[in-house]
């Protein structure tokens, strides 16, 4: 491999749109979330650099590895989750900026990487012998069963409308023919996918796998120090890449910088949903996803196939 190609891979995966971008934008978005939540609750809220201070402090604490569990899966799980996010960010943002570089099937890679994150948290939680962590892991599994199917069906809608499973081709189709959510099937799929990503990011009303007041932190209960910091970074950066993914699929327009405005609106919707609802029970969420969300995404699919 030539030196310049190596350097450009280095840059892509470590700086932009790789690790540094994902971490920095994650901290910024996490601050926005905490500040708006505080204002809705009549409080003042933290300062701008607070997420950075939290992460910096966590790296200074000792890492305790619980006895009796599998040491290596405990340590590697959060790192795998972070690497998945870096890969997703790379695919989504790079091909949004330059659609010609995308390859056939890159959407499938993104879907796999999105699924790797809850699997990593299940493995990390099961690696300790804590009953709360195993409860959290079982809830995470049920949650995946709930939202993955409607999510996949929603993603099929742009694929059917544009006739290709390459993200670059979907983006180029939208640049020529207008964003997909302007059509009836696109709009239905877009709205359903907002609920699916709320569950994917583990935010109220779907945060049962990490419910602090029910199971003491669930999947994260035994983590401390640098490993906890990596999990927190994963959660923060998921708040960046998950909405970006569905915006790129459904709402790419000729005005490329418009993605910031749409992302901000989506972030506001997520935060408002978070603050105006209590937490659902896992079986209620399962039922909700397998009835309402599945029916909605099926309708969107049918509409897309028949051309609406």
């Amino acid at each position: 491999m030539e030196k310049i190609e190596l350097l450009s891979y280095f840059f892509d995966y470590l700086v932009f749109p790789g690790l540094l971008f994902v971490v920095a934008s994650g901290m910024l978005v996490s601050w926005i979330d905490r500040k708006i939540t505080a204002r809705l609750q009549w409080r003042v809220g933290p300062g701008l650099l607070q997420p950075y201070y939290d992460i910096r402090k966590l790296f200074l604490k000792e890492v305790i590895i619980p006895e009796g569990g599998n040491k290596w899966s405990f340590i590697i799980a959060p790192m795998c989750a972070l690497i998945s996010i870096v890969i997703i960010s790379n695919i989504v943002l790079k091909y949004y900026i330059d659609p010609s570089g995308s390859f056939v099937g890159d959407i499938i890679v993104v879907i796999y990487m999105f699924a790797a994150i809850p699997v990593a948290s299940i493995i990390g939680a099961s690696a300790s012998k804590n009953p709360y962590a195993s409860l959290g892991a079982s809830r995470e599994m049920k949650s995946m069963l709930a939202y993955e199917l409607p999510f996949l069906m929603c993603i099929m809608v742009p694929v059917i409308k544009t006739g290709s499973i390459s993200m670059g081709a979907i983006i180029q189709h939208q640049l020529q023919n207008g964003p997909i959510f302007m059509s009836l099937s696109g709009l239905t799929a877009f709205i359903t996918s907002i609920f699916c990503i709320q569950a994917k990011m583990g935010i109220v009303p779907f945060d049962y796998s990490e419910a602090e007041t029910e199971i003491c932190g669930g999947v994260l209960v035994e983590y401390s120090g640098a490993l906890l910091a990596i999990w927190k970074l994963v959660k923060m950066s998921l708040l960046v890449v998950a909405p970006l993914f569905i915006i790129v699929l459904f709402a790419s327009t000729g005005f490329r910088a418009g993605i910031f405005a749409v992302y901000f609106v989506l972030l506001l919707i997520v935060i408002i949903l978070k603050n105006t609802n209590p937490r659902l029970r896992i079986d209620q969420a399962l039922r909700g996803f397998w009835t309402y969300a599945a029916v909605a995404s099926l309708t969107a699919l049918v509409l897309a196939v028949t051309g609406y």
Binding site: G45, P46, Q50, D54, I64, T213, V221, Y223, S224
Partner: peptide, 18 residues
């Protein structure tokens, strides 16, 4: 809301490890 220690950087956590 009256005292709000989150603006000073403090947060309540659910597990002693954190």
């Amino acid at each position: 809301p009256k005292y709000d220690i989150e603006r000073l950087g403090m947060q309540l956590v659910g597990s002693p490890r954190h």
